[in-house]
Write a protein that binds this DNA or RNA. Sequence first.
DNA 1: TCCAAAATGATAACTGTTCTTAATTATTAA
DNA 2: TTAATAATTAAGAACAGTTATCATTTTGGA
Lengths: 140, 140
Amino acid sequence: MQCKRNFSAKREAIYKILSSTDSHPTAEWIYENLKTQIPDLSLGTVYRNLSVFKETGLVKSVGVINGHERFDANTFQHSHFVCNCCFKIIDIPKSKTFVDQSTINNLENECDVHIQNHNITFYGLCGDCSKKISVESEDI
Amino acid sequence: MQCKRNFSAKREAIYKILSSTDSHPTAEWIYENLKTQIPDLSLGTVYRNLSVFKETGLVKSVGVINGHERFDANTFQHSHFVCNCCFKIIDIPKSKTFVDQSTINNLENECDVHIQNHNITFYGLCGDCSKKISVESEDI
DNA sequence: TCCAAAATGATAACTGTTCTTAATTATTAA
DNA sequence: TTAATAATTAAGAACAGTTATCATTTTGGA
């Protein structure tokens, strides 16, 4: 990010919409949702700024889910649940810590690696999809 | 997999090379490494069979690392370390269990989800890359 | 106001993966 | 064995998400 003081208007809008949602959106979603307010926004700008945010640590990638990279402006260490059906991503309450520092230290020695961060992702069916699937199976 | 009895020769070769390495390779790597033995192998066949293996649970995806999906024939629940520099993937000794069943049950209730599986990935620098980077900084 | 650096829109290019199609191979049934 | 059927394949086109290019515009400081 070479912009020294402030974000450009578009950069700010991209960060703002990302940090105001907990849906862990894709670049495309951000683009579509800003397009109404900023008609001359380009998808390339969204991608470009997301890269900038990732580099500076302002935004984290949740990973590539079903072919789309998902982003999160909440950079606190926390875990995610991913629905295998609708690909919704839900935050796991941040109180949950699964791996403590001493475990990480042990792992570093044992595996000869330097660990910078880690993430835990749970996969399964969200409440909505569970219901839908049980209704479908009644229909048969 | 509609083939009822045995794997076809190529399908078998793909599974064999994947289960004989712990490098968590890409489809491309499998293709390149089989090409010498099976000159008429096609990359599409590798992708197709990896999909078949994933569907039947014979093979798991480690996820998309640096734009390439990585595969693992070791389907036991285990964790991975990913090097942020060379993208090597190392298995974490399987004795390590970070999330127990009662924790999962609690999470399911708390978040209204049905958890099917989970994975833990550590990111950082592998031993080799750590050394390389410290040598580079000496040079400056 | 002027200038250099940064950011942008439009779109082409790239890349990993999936799909299509015609051909080949394996399996089944008679 | 032979014919019918099903599964698998190679080759390459198609696809989709993302990145790169480049001319233009915007920005912030002198």
